[in-house]
């Protein structure tokens, strides 16, 4: 997260700061996810054209592919766990080819895997190509309550700071305990979390004070107008929406197959 690697949200360019309006990206992300999830559970091939979206954004915006893939893989286990029940429960043979019988469960399992890859990639691409403050600004302009937006900003700001505190605690515990990988007992975990909580409460008090001395009156003001540029953001939205709708209505892989074989 905030520490290692390519600092995407700081790279100047089409998709980062000063790039496509975050509102456009949020809209396109939702449109994408709606189309992905709208396909039937046995659909595989028609999901494939949708990969163009994460792939092309990744390509244009310098998201490191390895990092993206790692994130995507981390999200897979739960989905695969649930998905693996499909072959178990859905044994109806959907088709036979070359002496091979494939059940509906296996097809829907592959479909779930594809959906998962697409959905996670979309989320990661959105997060990696949008500076968080601009994303928050966009969300506010899209009608998300101010208090939740401010909350997201504060949470994001102090995330790594408090995580480092926790890591230091765990390390200190490991140094005191015996064994190579000492386990934390519930009771000591509770007191560690308790300490962490007290420190967090102190931190909140100090932040509040530093807000007060700078004239805080209950409202967090931001001075950064977002400009929705139709020539850029409008085209971005229009292009992808059109693409997603086409993919939804037209069997692109089927057409492609037919075209290649001259049928």
């Amino acid at each position: 997260m905030p520490t290692s690697g390519c600092r995407l949200d700081e790279n100047p360019g089409f998709f980062s700061r000063g790039g496509v309006d975050p509102r456009a990206k949020v809209f396109v992300t939702f449109a994408f996810l709606l189309v992905v999830t709208s396909f039937g559970k046995y659909e595989i091939s028609r999901l494939t054209p949708l990969f163009l979206y994460p792939v092309s954004i990744t390509a244009v915006s310098c998201v490191p592919v390895a990092k993206l893939l790692r994130r995507v893989l981390v999200a897979l286990p739960f989905v695969l766990f649930v998905g693996l029940f499909n072959p178990l429960f859905d044994r109806q043979i959907l088709f036979k080819a070359w002496g091979l019988s494939i059940s509906g469960g296996w097809i829907s399992f592959v479909s779930i895997t594809f959906r998962s890859l697409l959905a996670v990639a979309a989320a990661v691409v959105l997060a990696m190509t949008t500076p968080f403050d601009r994303l928050c600004l966009g969300l506010e302009k899209m009608g998300v309550p101010r208090v939740l937006v401010t909350q997201l900003q504060f949470l994001y700001r102090y995330l790594s700071l408090l995580q480092e505190e926790a890591v230091r605690m765990v390390r200190a515990h490991a140094l005191r305990a015996r064994g190579n990988r000492p386990k934390i007992r519930v009771s000591s975990a509770a007191s560690m979390i308790g300490f962490l909580l007290l420190r967090s409460l102190d931190r909140a008090t100090r932040i509040y004070r530093s807000m007060l001395v700078r004239g805080f009156d209950g409202e967090v003001r931001l001075m950064k107008p977002l400009r929705f540029a139709w020539s850029r953001d409008g085209i971005f939205v229009a292009f992808w929406t059109l693409y997603f709708l086409t993919v939804r209505f037209v069997d692109v892989p089927g057409r492609l197959f037919g075209w290649v074989l001259g049928r």
């Binding site: 208090v147 401010t150 909350q151 900003q153 504060f154 949470l155 700001r157 102090y158 995330l159 700071l161 408090l162 995580q163 505190e165 926790a166 890591v167 605690m169 765990v170 386990k183 934390i184 007992r185 519930v186 000591s188 975990a189 560690m192 979390i193 962490l196 909580l197 967090s200 409460l201 931190r203 909140a204 008090t205 932040i207 509040y208 807000m211 007060l212 805080f216 009156d217 209950g218 967090v220």
Partner: peptide
């Protein structure tokens, strides 16, 4: 309204992430 709630909520949100980094063994 409670002005001090704004930083408190924010920090406690981050605290949840931090607390989740403390893995304990379940008896």
């Amino acid at each position: 309204p409670d002005e001090s709630r704004i930083p408190l909520m924010g920090v406690l949100g981050a605290f949840i992430f931090a607390a989740q980094m403390i893995n304990f063994s379940i008896p």
